[in-house]
Design a protein around this nucleic acid. Sequence first.
DNA 1: ATTTCAATCCGAACATTGTTCGGCTATAAT
DNA 2: ATTATAGCCGAACAATGTTCGGATTGAAAT
Lengths: 166, 166
Amino acid sequence: MGAVGKETDVVRQTRHHPAELDLIDRKILGALAEDASRSYAELSSIVNLSAPAVHDRVKRLKRDGVIKSTVAILDGCKLGRTLLTFLVVDTSSYNATRQLLTFVNRPEVEELHTVAGDGCVFVKVRAADTESLEEFLMEIQSLEGVRSLRSYIALSTFLERGPSPD
Amino acid sequence: MGAVGKETDVVRQTRHHPAELDLIDRKILGALAEDASRSYAELSSIVNLSAPAVHDRVKRLKRDGVIKSTVAILDGCKLGRTLLTFLVVDTSSYNATRQLLTFVNRPEVEELHTVAGDGCVFVKVRAADTESLEEFLMEIQSLEGVRSLRSYIALSTFLERGPSPD
DNA sequence: ATTTCAATCCGAACATTGTTCGGCTATAAT
DNA sequence: ATTATAGCCGAACAATGTTCGGATTGAAAT
């Protein structure tokens, strides 16, 4: 009983994703999530390891998919997108939901999720101005099977970042 | 009249941020927003310029704040955060709003905005599981001046990215 | 028309950083 | 005891980032 039970337990824990990360891994992840342009030399002094050791760890974290990618964060306003809005779309049919999913190609759409509650789709939109937002909203409302559409227009943004390792 | 009018017009346009970006700038921004680990050599072949020329442009884009930073994107699930939720908090006092803003320090909070509508705060939360989410929700509800709290739990994520230059 | 100025580009040299390698140590299993 | 594995290090090497001088262009001023 002891041996077999132990083994399956280990399998259970490992099966569904969560990677095993020690404190050093988390420090590295935190540092890179904040600023991915840090050199291995800088990281190595943060965690008190050599540069190659940090390199190995980062390589492993990328291979395991903990670090999905590294991207440049752009300033929406500087790009001419001044209006951040969150939409909750209530759809009455699967077809409508499917149609909404095609909006992932729009440059002003930054996030698109399905959320709990009957046929709800959640959208984060960064539009150029009120005009182009209105156009966008009307386009959604005119879809067959869109029951209601609530919008939350952002006034001030106090925090905007990705998943934290802490 | 002509000259003076013209000048103030130019000032107006420039005054409130939007940077002047040509097609090459936008191509570079798009490439880096997708994958910031691209080398200058690779970028130079994308836009048909030399590496130093691209370097100059990127340097300018950083100086002007169009590129705010470059960060590593981590996998929430791999970190043990499996539950993505959006909250709309309706506050009845400024004091309550101010208290909510202190949540920017929580590692599970990824976004925090004030939104239009009386005293509304919008929060993006990535919690470990339903338990820790419930704890978090209760903590918010127990704040003085929090009128209502709606939560949208994400089922599937189809798109998640930053501002696009297109 | 000519000149001046600023912006942009390029190739080539240079500096920094990323990456690989062999060897060392510690731990755990045989 | 001994083998295997994982993790670390310093040093060499490879790739990339970065700077520089000079050439070209276009616009503004003379």
